[in-house]
């Protein structure tokens, strides 16, 4: 036994779970969480009520007679403008817009970022600077020129046109993201691959892309939620039969004729917001795993 004085501190410092600091932190967190969850709660509860029950007031009370009929109506028979086939058309339109836009924008931006980070060419700095300026111009400014451009290309009002617009507008920020990520990878990895006889595409597909999983997940979250939630481009660049879900939702909620079906509106809103929520939950886990995997340096 060593001579430890048992008066005064010794050994591990004691820590109490219930300290004043913890109480403050947890109560603030709980309050904020409740504050943010109340609207969602009201939405869910209202969407499960019938219209008579809603008219009774009491928006916080749970449904007496829960019904999924508003959800079914929102999906398949709510009227959006002229059509009365619900949100389903908008859902599939949004899928057909989001999936190619996400894939193309990330693919092109990652190649851009890779070229800018690893293959410095004459004028690459200027190119990057110009691209960055693009990130800071409010895109509303570019809507009118874009409409003309799409018209001249003959794809105005089509899904192709909208996918092109989303891909272009995603480019500056995504390129920045990928360029910065690729510059953090050791340059010697790139050199080793060149000695091993790989070219521009070989290094990109076989070395860089497998290493950029964490960044890809971030980019997918960013792009998928942005494009899914987009309203402005959807309404400007497409015809009604191609309206994305957000535009249809707006049309359902803002119908001025007939009875206001709050329950259907709430169900439609939740349905529309479900996709980004799902992306957050699923890829959030992947995201953490991706970062953990990327932390092991080779």
């Amino acid at each position: 036994m060593a001579d430890i004085t048992f008066e005064g501190p010794y050994g591990r410092r004691p820590r109490s779970r219930i300290s004043a600091q913890n109480i403050v932190i947890y109560s603030v967190l709980t309050l904020v969480a409740i504050y943010y969850l109340i609207p969602l709660y009201v939405m869910v509860v209202t969407s499960l009520k019938g219209l008579p029950e809603i008219r009774m007031g009491n928006i916080f009370s749970p449904p007496i007679e829960a019904t999924f009929e508003p959800w079914a109506r929102a999906w398949s028979s709510a009227c959006t403008g002229l059509n009365c086939d619900g949100l389903q058309r908008g859902f599939w339109n949004s899928v057909r817009i989001t999936v190619p836009s996400v894939v193309f924008s990330i693919l092109i931006a990652s190649i851009n970022g890779y070229a800018l980070a690893n293959w410095r060419f004459k004028g690459s700095e200027v190119f990057f600077a110009v691209l960055m300026i693009g990130a800071f111009i409010p895109y509303q400014v570019m809507i009118y020129p874009m409409v003309i451009l799409l018209r001249e290309l003959g794809i105005y009002g089509t899904l192709t046109g909208l996918v092109l617009v989303h891909t272009i507008f995603g480019m500056p920020i995504l390129t920045l993201l990928f360029r910065n990520y690729f510059t953090t990878l050791p340059e010697e990895l790139f050199k080793a691959a060149r000695v091993d006889g790989t070219g521009f595409w070989g290094i990109y597909f076989r070395i860089m892309l497998p290493l950029s999983v964490p960044m890809l997940v971030v980019a997918v979250i960013l792009q998928a939620t942005n494009i899914w939630n987009d309203f402005l481009f959807g309404v400007v660049f497409t015809r009604p039969e191609y309206y994305p879900m957000t535009v249809q939702l707006n049309n359902i909620v803002n119908t001025t004729t007939g009875v206001r079906e709050y329950n259907v509106n709430m169900a439609a809103t939740i349905l529309t917001g479900l996709v980004p929520l799902l992306i957050y939950f699923v890829s959030g886990r992947l995201f953490v795993r991706g970062i953990a995997a990327g932390a092991v340096k080779g």
Binding site: P186, E188, A192, R194, V195, K297, G298
Partner: peptide, 20 residues
């Protein structure tokens, strides 16, 4: 010539192994 065609092998300070 390209690096691969020069008849050289190279060893780097940071090892530069392909982690995946």
């Amino acid at each position: 010539d390209e690096p691969k065609d020069r008849g050289i092998g190279m060893v780097f300070q940071s090892y530069a192994l392909y982690p995946q």
